[in-house]
Design a binder for these strands. Structure first.
Lengths: 226, 226
DNA sequence: CACTTAACTTAAAATAACCTTAAAAGCATG
DNA sequence: CATGCTTTTAAGGTTATTTTAAGTTAAGTG
């Protein structure tokens, strides 16, 4: 997952890069329209985050050029103000989404994920992380502070689900639906078994992450110091 | 935090209401444009979730009417397809955000929270609270002025019921019906036992909330200075 | 004030949820 | 078709929660 950020405000640009990298995306950036356009035309990116107001070449022009070259990478426009005009022009020119400054991290990340879903592709970061562990869903490897280990498909899916839903308690029903499908006859014990497998592997990589069972409700990840 | 959902697909509508309620929002809903508009014009909502395709009056018309009445409640549009046209029309008409079906819970919740932040207000779920306590029904944790503690399922349901019905005296029969179901053979003593459990936990978090027994009638919460 | 009844509290029993492990079954690969 | 790996099944053990039950306290009533 490669993201290109084109934004001339240096501080904002760096902040964006840092945030995205933190979430395990691969990120490049430009601070002017000219080099931004060059990079965008390379066609190697999965998402472009594009400011409208840019030195040398403005965002809308870049967007039009990209599209006229037949590159249909998802583009998220950054509009300086709450200017409907920019939005409309941007969407007309082939943008997939816009974001009004100031915006926050969560929102940007949500939109990037949403873009992936909308196109039916999966624009996901290659690795998820939580506390002292990191999960590479591509290679299905779990890395902790004391080594790494490979997971089976179901283990990986379960941990992925728990990390993505780290803020809520994931019920067994939800987990079953996700891992075995909506009308499977999988039982609660399936989940319990995999939770048990995962806990063992978490210990194996010396992570201090715990899978907390909330009786009658579901499971929730917990970091060491909580 | 009051949310209005206007959506004609009954199943989707109910699902939305349930999900939002589960996250401690107060939710009303309509399944056609006419009653939807009526409710929206009341101006009491903090967010409106509005489907575009609706019987009687379509979403865009509703949106325009709302705005022409000077109500600037945040509106999230639900667009049936990936139709840029709908988005642009919607944004022109004064929508704050849109969501393309199908979408998932997380995304909707994120957008609702994001809307609040963007406007600088705090559109947060009412973490069910009363006096000096606050109850998170998601994690089943009770927080008081001197720490927090986890509740069991029944304890949580009981306290939730008491808080929601804080203005009236909750009878044991009502409580039994809510916690154990309509035709259970649960007895009055069950309620008494759980009231006792709760009182102990309220003391544990140093709350000054009291569960008042009204002889022959039921229970009612009371704040410290009452 | 004595009596009755409702409510309170607590401990112990029963139940249901969850955990773990081992073994069987399924599946792909060489 | 044998091997190794993943997934499912199943059983027994552990613990948290719910229910039962019994003794105690408090409130209302004549």
């Amino acid at each position: 997952m490669r993201i290109l950020v084109i934004e001339d405000e240096v501080r904002l640009c760096e902040a964006l890069v840092q945030i995205l990298k933190k979430h395990n995306y691969t990120v490049d950036s430009d601070t002017d329209g000219e080099s931004g356009l060059d990079d965008a035309l390379s066609g190697i990116y999965d998402v472009v985050v594009l400011d409208i107001m840019l030195p040398k070449i403005d965002g809308i022009t870049i967007l039009k050029k990209i599209r006229s070259e037949g590159i249909d990478v998802p583009v998220i426009l950054l509009t300086a103000k709450d200017s409907i005009h920019d939005k409309v022009t941007g969407l007309d020119s082939g943008a997939d989404d816009y974001l009004t400054k100031p915006f926050n991290t969560e929102e940007l990340l949500a939109r990037i994920r949403a873009l992936g879903r909308r196109r039916g592709e999966i624009i996901e970061p290659d690795a998820l992380s939580f506390g002292d562990i990191s999960l590479d869903t591509q290679t299905m490897r779990l890395t902790g502070r004391g080594g790494d280990i490979s997971l089976t498909l179901k283990e990986c899916e379960l941990l992925e689900y728990l990390i993505i839903h780290k803020d809520v308690i994931a019920s067994k029903e939800q987990i079953i639906e996700k891992l075995w499908g909506f009308d499977s006859d999988a039982e609660a014990n399936h989940v319990e078994v995999y939770v048990s497998f995962l806990r063992k592997k978490l210990r194996h990589v010396h992570s201090d992450i715990k899978i907390n069972a909330v009786r009658g409700v579901g499971y929730k990840l917990r970091k060491g110091g909580e």
